[in-house]
């Protein structure tokens, strides 16, 4: 059976690991490569780097960072933030990313999704969706770091990105992000029910039970978290251990599994 994945997310600005709260207020935390290696060693199933600035200077630092990270990380790497052309995707994959996450640019030009998928394969295209509850029955999609409401209805948009060839959806609830009150279960389930591609839950986890809840109460394939891991509130090992106790299939990294160089 496929394992439910735990993804460690690192928000990057000018090559530094930072953390924002509710899409506002940014704090620097440290060297992203060190953190990423630590998460790799703790058993993260994937590592995601999101460039929150994504101007050309920040992008160049992202390439350097990716190049360093790849030498020591042997799980899939996803990179996102300001990805807006097929050339961007190509450069990031060449620099060592396994998947590229596309957000605003997909809304502005949905054909970008199919262009990238047809050249690099659907598995390498993750569509990032930031959404917010507008009324009881309606969620809408936001872009440009949560600053612009597109007016697009979330489930319609999710179905559309699947049709255009997205390999996965990374769904961040702007309502729960940064709150530590748990993932947005109703929003996630609405999207999981509508698409057949994997959905990654993002935004709001504050403790280990939130991971259990998201996998017991929705059909999300993966859960992504950032600050809860950065500040050491919780380790990936603890999360996996708890999920495993609840019979949720996860990959457990064995303590004696460390592999060194030639004998």
């Amino acid at each position: 059976m496929l394992a439910k994945r735990i993804i460690a997310c690192l928000d990057i600005r000018d090559g530094q690991l930072v953390k924002g709260v509710n899409f506002e207020g940014i704090r620097e935390i440290g060297d992203p490569v060190e953190y990423a290696i630590k998460y790799n060693n703790e058993g993260a199933d994937e590592i995601t780097f999101l460039d929150i600035n994504a101007d050309s200077k920040s992008r160049n630092k992202m390439y350097d960072l990716l190049y360093k990270a790849c030498k020591n990380i042997f799980v899939p790497l996803t990179v996102g933030g300001g990805v807006s052309s097929v050339d961007d995707v190509k450069e990031l994959l060449r620099a060592g990313a396994d998947k590229v996450s596309i957000g605003s640019a997909a809304v502005k030009n949905p054909k970008f999704i199919s262009d990238a998928a047809s050249i690099f394969g659907e598995q390498s295209v993750v569509i990032a969706i930031d959404a917010k509850r507008i009324s009881d029955e309606r969620y809408e999609v936001f872009i440009n770091g949560g600053r612009v409401n597109t007016g697009l209805e979330l489930v319609d948009w999710a179905k559309k990105v699947e049709k255009f060839g997205a390999g996965e959806i990374l769904l961040t609830s702007m309502d729960t992000d940064g709150t530590k009150n748990g993932f947005d279960i109703p929003m996630l389930q609405a999207v999981c029910d509508a698409v057949n591609i994997p959905v990654i839950a993002s935004g709001g986890c504050g403790n280990v039970d939130d991971f259990v809840d998201v996998f017991e109460q929705t059909s999300a394939d993966a859960a992504l978290a950032a600050s809860i891991f950065h500040y050491g509130d919780l380790t990936i090992e603890q999360v996996k251990h708890e999920l495993s106790k609840k019979n949720i299939p996860v990959r457990i990294q064995h303590k004696d599994g460390a592999v060194d160089g030639p004998i």
Binding site: L2, I197, P198
Partner: peptide, 10 residues
């Protein structure tokens, strides 16, 4: 099962 087969499996 979903195709592609993508992710960690035992």
């Amino acid at each position: 099962v979903k195709i592609p087969h993508m992710g960690w499996n035992s």
